[in-house]
Design a protein around this nucleic acid. Structure first.
Length: 417
RNA sequence: GUGGGUGUAGCUCAACUGGUUAGAGCACCGGUUUGUGGCACCGGAGGUUGUGGGUUCAAGUCCCAUCACUCACCCCA
């Protein structure tokens, strides 16, 4: 008779009542901190035209080429569940002419995203990110403001061990020149490279820079650095960023090997890394994307933003169980009392006291047990004699002391506690 | 997409080299206390050992397949 039960999709998770308050707490702090920095929330749809992502994130990236949930609409168009949020925010920014209304726009989001990867610790097929995008300024102070915002949020959430790494990858042309030089340098060492890095050699040579293989890291220690290929302007921009971060006492490591996977990044890029959340250790990634807005059809709008993985943040924080409790549990004896229970409960609720009662007609004893399990502060006992005398028993479950209170004095009694 | 690990009660785990009725703690329900929780004691319920096949006199245990979970690679938050 037992039918096979349906399971959640691989890589998706239910957030149960026992852990949902960690999410609520994190969200509350994000809202709070975003407001302090003057960022406004934007909400975009769960799916978009597939083109949006191939044109922004990049056709050859893994995200676009093999990880998207793409499906055909009935009208024949290709739609995709958002694999990342920046593209959607930029689309909305352009579509609603925000680039024309304001010269500077500060937006943030909390969103669910979808990528079809093999799940592992800190990586899921539906996952959640919050992030911020600052549109309109090309100045280093904008970079610093974004990094500073991310940093404040992590501090507020209480992430234990976190390292900020920053780098600059300059303009596209600087990067292209550098790629050629890097390949020229690596060519003699090709046989010593791992299989993965050999594949990257043609496809995405910059990725070889952030290898975890120690032998490769050693080879790379003599490699040319991208910084040498940057324009004086980009170098000055970056040193301003570094200077301001130091002024603000935001600790960071300059990491010349840091690269980012999405095509739209240029100049300043950064990552926040945690040490004790497993192999997927990037909690937050971000950077400049000065040409993305114009590339997607908007006005030329230099911009910078970050995205932070919420599941990974939850892995990085120490979690204290929070004891839940209600103000009052009403214990009912006999049918006549049922009516009074309902009345009593809503009366107390209307004055903002939380109330539960039994819905299974259980024994007095099990109702008292339930009150205890729910961590109720008080139990109100209503039976035939209480109704007859209009004297409800109100028991303080911490002290065990019990008092008689008339129905019309109940709310007053609780307010005066 | 590739590789490793693990599936026994609601949860955490036992069950020597294959051996008879698969156990314990926690949680749950009931009783000791006909209308008073926590603590204690006593009792109860709960399992097709993920699923399917195979080897064997005998399988939770060995073999194969399959599914699920998990960690790692690739890549990313």
């Amino acid at each position: 008779m037992k039918t096979k039960s349906i399971q959640s999709i691989k890589g998706t998770q239910d957030i149960l009542p026992s852990e949902v308050h960690f999410w609520q707490e994190m969200e509350r702090k994000i809202f709070e901190e975003m407001a302090l920095f003057g960022f406004s929330e934007i909400r975009t749809p769960a799916f978009e035209n597939t083109d949006l992502f191939s044109r922004s994130v990049g056709e050859q990236t893994d995200i676009v080429s093999k990880e998207m949930y793409t499906f055909e609409d009935r009208s024949g168009g290709s739609l995709t569940l958002k694999p990342e949020a920046t593209a959607s925010v930029v689309r909305a920014f352009i579509q609603h002419n925000l680039d024309k209304i304001n010269t500077l726009t500060r937006l943030f989001y909390i969103d669910a995203l979808f990528r079809r990867e093999r799940p592992q610790k800190g990586r899921y097929r539906q996952f959640h990110q919050f992030g911020a995008e600052l549109f309109g300024s090309e100045h280093p102070e904008a970079d610093v403001e974004i990094v500073s915002l991310a940093s404040s949020i992590f501090k507020s959430i209480g992430i234990n061990e976190i390292t900020l790494k920053i780098n600059t990858i300059g303009s596209k042309s600087a990067r292209d020149n550098y790629k050629i030089e890097l390949k020229r340098f690596l060519k003699p060492h090709f046989n010593k490279l791992s299989e993965a890095s050999r594949e990257r050699f043609e496809k995405n040579p910059l990725r070889i820079l952030d290898t975890k293989n120690s032998q490769e890291q050693e080879i790379l220690s003599n490699a040319p650095q991208i910084f040498e290929y940057l324009s004086e302007y980009d170098k000055a921009h970056f040193s301003d960023v570094e200077m301001h971060l130091k002024d603000l006492n935001i600790n960071f490591e300059f990491d010349p090997y840091l690269v980012r996977g999405l095509d739209y990044y240029n100049r300043t890029i950064f990552e926040f890394i945690s040490n004790d959340i497993g192999s997927q250790n990037a909690i937050c990634g971000g950077g400049r994307y000065d040409s993305l807005v114009s590339q997607l059809g908007g006005n030329d709008t230099p911009s910078i933003g970050f995205a932070a993985g919420m599941e990974r943040i939850l892995l990085a924080i120490s979690k204290k169980e929070r004891a839940k409790s209600i103000d009052c549990y009403i214990v009912c004896m006999g049918n006549k009392a049922q009516d009074w229970v309902l009345k009593c409960a809503n009366k107390l609720r209307s004055t903002r006291f939380s109330v539960c009662f039994d819905l299974l007609k259980r024994s007095l004893k099990s109702q008292m047990k339930e009150a205890n399990r729910l961590n109720a502060k008080h139990a109100i006992i209503i039976g035939d004699s209480e109704i007859k005398d209009n004297k409800f028993q109100v028991k303080n479950l911490d002290t065990g002391k019990q008092q008689e209170v008339a129905f019309e004095h109940l709310t007053k009694y609780f307010k005066n506690l």
